[in-house]
């Protein structure tokens, strides 16, 4: 290369006086950035759309913002929210517990067990939740009486299905059993994501299978399980609105029953929307924190405390892009 003319010299006649093989003295500090006119156009467009939306929200009388305000903190809405939260919590607990069991069953060496667990996932994932809810609700048509006892033998307890399967129980069963199928796949994925060497090392230390799962594999699988589970919780919170078809007074059913009376449909739906957004936002923040907790040891940095995280404080040892550049190091 040194003997031939450098291409730069040929391209730029102004630098032709440089001796062959030499490079001009350049400092890229303070270089002018690339312009992005299209981005500015997009920003302008979005600004106009935002202004329009704002105008629409303010000037359209059908929103009836005063009605929204009046109902937003109403006690009856609070009861609906409580039911929604309760359904979400219980159905998710059933879903997670059932999911872990089905996942472990699916990974079992016992062929029958793993097949049955696989079939469970196939069945409950394959039918829409709404259909499952309605089915549980109408179980009495198929099975008028439910009894517990020795199979084909004497009964211990029995009762009418209609008294046993209340709308609340139908909702819990429908949502929970469906969720267990999804959680099973999430948990299984998480368990498979943990290196086999971890199980071997724990086994070599004399740990039993249950202990290995509880102390070694699950805590590590949590890193893979938590993010999708978080979105499952958020999905579940929204899916509970389906139970309004069972006349269960969740948030949606509560606002429906009010606007069926008062015909303030839009403002009450907005109340529901706002509360769903508030709840999902809280869940989102909680999920991010739990994720950070289970990421301990996964990176070279210590996990961040809750308040630092909640208040959007940067962790002090976090690698910021600026800190990595040599220029920033010179400054400090």
């Amino acid at each position: 290369m040194a003997t031939t003319q450098p291409p730069a010299t040929r391209d730029d006649p102004g630098k032709a006086e440089l001796p062959p093989g030499a490079v001009p003295v350049v400092d890229v500090a303070g270089a002018s950035p690339v312009r992005h006119p299209l981005r500015w156009l997009a920003v302008l467009l979005l600004a106009v759309l935002a202004a329009q939306l704002f105008h629409f929200l303010i000037t359209n009388p059908h929103f009836e913002w005063s009605t929204v305000g009046a109902y937003f903190g109403a006690q009856v809405i609070g009861q609906g929210i409580a039911t929604t939260v309760e359904l979400t919590a219980i159905a998710m607990l059933i879903g997670i517990a059932g999911g872990v069991l089905v996942a472990v069953g699916r990974m079992s060496e016992n062929r029958v067990l793993s097949t049955v667990c696989g079939a469970y996932v196939w069945f409950f994932r394959g039918i829409p939740v709404l259909v499952q809810l309605v089915f549980w609700y109408n179980l009495s048509a198929l099975l008028p009486r439910i009894s517990f006892g020795v199979p084909f033998g004497p009964e211990f307890i029995s009762g009418h299905t209609n008294t046993l399967i209340t709308p609340w129980l139908a909702a819990i069963l429908g949502l929970g059993l469906n969720e267990a199928a999804y959680m099973a796949e999430i948990v299984r994925g998480g368990l498979l994501g943990v290196d086999q060497g971890q199980t071997e090392a724990a086994a070599a230390l004399g740990m039993g299978r249950a202990r290995i799962l509880r102390r070694v594999v699950l805590p590590q699988a949590m890193r893979f399980i938590i993010p999708p589970t978080g979105s499952q919780v958020i999905n579940m919170l929204k899916a509970t609105s389906l139970v309004s078809v069972l006349a269960l007074a969740d948030l949606l059913y509560t606002v429906q029953s009010i606007y069926n009376r008062t015909f303030e449909t839009i403002p009450l739906l907005i109340v529901a929307c706002l509360w769903y957004l508030v709840m999902t936002s809280v869940l989102y923040v909680g999920q991010s924190f739990i994720e950070r907790y289970y990421a301990r040891g996964a990176t070279r940095h210590a996990p961040q405390g809750f308040w630092n995280f909640a208040l959007f404080r940067r962790r002090p040892d976090a690698p910021s892009p600026a800190a990595d550049s040599p220029l920033a190091k010179e400054e400090t």
Binding site: E200, A201, A204
Partner: peptide
């Protein structure tokens, strides 16, 4: 599991519990 208690093992890839 019980038999393994008295036998220690060290692995090529350490297999420490990262959490």
């Amino acid at each position: 599991t019980r038999q393994r208690r008295d036998i220690g093992m060290v692995f090529q890839h350490f297999n420490l519990f990262p959490h």
